[in-house]
Design a protein around this nucleic acid. Structure first.
Length: 226
DNA sequence: GCGACAG
DNA sequence: ATCTTGTCGC
């Protein structure tokens, strides 16, 4: 958050920011060779008043854990469906700045383009960092889809108002699917491919699994290179 | 008015 | 997200 705008305090202000930044989102592939994949997630302390963000970096396609950074700050916005990014982005940006090895793409724990105003967490983070991002959420915000096959790799487009906004992806056999969508500078097909290539034997991609573990562990701060 | 609703 | 143990199913 480079003080380009004061961070919104109300849903009305946040909606204006979304409408203002949504045009900057790029839905085509504008990313080079992927060597480092990032993951971001948040944890909370003090009954939600303190947000703790973890941004991790893994090598690709090996998925070896390379580095992580943690940042804490007062939680800047309440959780309101459709406005999640205003709660999570500031801390993520602060953690991201501390990384020595910047990732070539970041997998976010939330929606990207599959959003009521087409500007979910992954889009917001991607635009502010001008870095390729992907939305990989654990549950649905919007969009309908046809029945999904049971095999890992099966997927179906999710539609909202007759527009394809993302895809439901089976990341593990017979497991609840992931909701994947473009964030910024990554097309939907590429997003699906990268999410699957970052997923091993668990439902969640290794990026979010690790970010989750780091963000939920209390106390730590700063950056750690492995 | 009623149900849905990322984390 | 967070509070929290064991339990059912592939």
């Amino acid at each position: 958050m480079n003080d380009l705008h004061p961070w919104p305090r109300t849903i009305e202000q946040a909606r204006i920011v979304q409408d203002q930044l949504r045009d900057r989102v790029i839905l085509d592939d504008r990313l080079g060779e992927v060597r480092w994949v990032g993951g971001a997630d948040l944890g909370f302390e003090e009954q939600g008043t303190i947000a703790r963000a973890a941004v991790v970096v893994l090598s690709f396609p090996e998925l070896e854990r390379v580095e992580y950074a943690i940042a804490r700050m007062p939680t800047p916005f309440p959780y309101v469906p459709g406005f999640l990014s205003f709660r999570e982005v500031p801390a993520i940006l602060q953690a991201f700045e501390q990384l020595h090895q910047k990732p070539d793409v970041i997998l976010c724990d939330g929606q990207g383009y599959a959003h009521p105003r087409r500007f979910g967490l992954a889009c917001h983070l991607g635009v502010l960092l001008d870095l390729p991002t992907i939305g990989a959420a654990k549950s649905r915000l919007i969009g309908e889809h046809d029945p999904l096959g049971p095999a890992k790799g099966d997927w179906q487009p999710t539609l909202d108002r007759a527009e394809t906004v993302g895809a439901v992806v089976r990341s593990r056999h017979n497991c609840r699917p992931l909701y994947v969508s473009s964030g910024h500078r990554v097309s939907l097909p590429t997003a699906i491919d990268l999410v699957l290539r970052c997923t091993t034997r668990y439902r969640l991609p290794e990026t979010t699994r690790w970010a989750d573990a780091i963000a939920s562990q209390r106390g730590a701060y700063g950056t750690v290179k492995l």
